[in-house]
Amino acid sequence: MKINTENLKEDMNTVSKIERREFLKIGFLITGVFAGGTVLSLASNIRGAFASTGEFTEKYPYKPHYSMLIRQNLCVDCERCIEACTKTNEVPSYGYRTIILEKVVPDAIGQKREFIPVLCNQCNNPPCVRVCPTRASYKDKNNGIVMIERKKCIGCKACVLACPYNARYFNEEVHAIDKCDFCFDTRLSKGEKLTGCAAACPTGARKFGDISDPNDFVYQMIHQIEKQVWVMRPEAGTKPNVFYMKA
């Protein structure tokens, strides 16, 4: 067995200075593109990610405060989460509650591909709930999940337009808007501890937790100054409960 090992070394430690400079240049050109979302500065990191301390706890006193952490670089688009979600929540073929976005950056060094799972962000400040004329969409007072009372849904689709995350669709089978509810109806309310997608994820890219509990894994992961944590579309001011980072 003869292998030219030098050619195979592509760890970033062995990348030449020029290559590294190139990489930084790309990084500057498309900041946020690599991260897969808008990177928060450290100051907003604390405000955005430390969603369970200080004024946040007073303003959004959910117990448990359900949350999901997406460790973006661990996602390999095996789509077992989507399969599990579809099966658990009887999602019709024309709809989805969660999806995985694919991004290819041809001029990146090394890995050129990235998968970004997206789902309802269960926002602390949900635009969909504000626009609903009949309060069919509401934020659960106990656990902060954005839920739908199907019988009240008039199907005006204002919430679909209001959502910055394309998380909603009209479900013909139940004749109401459908969206991710962290599997509250199908799993959490029946004693399960995880959402269907998080339970099915083989890599740990999706971590489900409770950010009102300091011993919780998600709580601990997102409360670290040295870790870059971000949320999707922070400019929309929705204060999401789905966080992103790289493991």
Partner: peptide, 10 residues
Amino acid sequence: PAYHELGIND
């Protein structure tokens, strides 16, 4: 599209 700033494929 909602995630236009991410530069998503397809």
